[in-house]
């Protein structure tokens, strides 16, 4: 059975690194893995989505509508944009933050109210304030590790399997704080 993970967010939030870590964990556990990434123009502050699929044999590299087991959303509006990709019982992990798109900043569109409450009507939604935890840890840049840790328990694999890959992936100087951030997220759920 193939497991389908989506990572959605705003260009620059580090969705690419997150998907690579998930892919590596699945690969190390012996799965066939495909990861689909976004490069180029779309990365510049736009809505970005990356995909990780793993299982015995994976064909297509993307996750489509109705197939996501887990969506990790780094921002509320992006959670709303991609929620329809979830399976019936899929999990929606949301980093509870708001980044206004330019259409909202200039007043052309409204940022939707009560996103989390509305998403909860149809989906299993788990929220975390990753930014707050990262700042408490002393480095706002470890937000990704907090959110990944929080999502990890919905995806599977052991804490040790995750930490091994986090250690091998993040910049050497930031290994300790990223591992700490991951554990904080992991234990928050």
């Amino acid at each position: 059975m193939t497991k389908n993970i989506m990572i959605v967010g705003v260009g620059g939030q580090g969705t690419l690194l997150t998907s690579r870590i998930i892919g590596k964990v699945a690969l190390d556990a012996g799965h066939d893995v495909k990861i689909s990434e976004v490069h180029g123009m779309a990365q510049r502050g736009g809505s970005v989505v990356t995909f990780v699929r793993y299982g015995d044999k994976v064909c297509e590299p993307v996750v489509e509508e109705g197939q996501a087991d887990v969506i990790i959303a780094f921002e509320r509006l992006e959670a709303q944009r991609y929620a329809h990709f979830l399976k019936k019982d899929g999990a929606l992990i949301v980093n509870d933050c708001r980044i206004d798109p330019m259409t909202v900043v200039i007043g052309a569109k409204e940022y939707p109210e009560n996103i989390i409450e509305n998403l909860k009507k149809n989906h299993k939604v788990y929220t975390i304030d990753g930014q707050k935890i990262a700042i408490e840890l002393g480095n706002s840049k470890v937000l990704n590790s907090v959110v990944l840790g929080f999502a990890a328990s919905s995806i599977g694999f052991s804490k040790e399997e995750w930490l091994k890959v986090v250690e091998a992936t993040v910049p050497p100087k930031t290994i300790e704080i990223n591992k700490k951030a991951f554990v904080c997220g992991f234990e928050a759920k």
Partner: peptide, 27 residues
């Protein structure tokens, strides 16, 4: 794959409607 499903079977695998969300183009 969903495009192919729609043509062959008349439906894809989506189980929820797409929600309206203000566009976030690159900047």
């Amino acid at each position: 794959a969903n495009l192919l499903r729609r043509v062959l079977f008349g439906k894809d695998e989506a189980c929820f409607d797409k929600l309206d969300a203000p566009a976030r183009p690159p900047i």
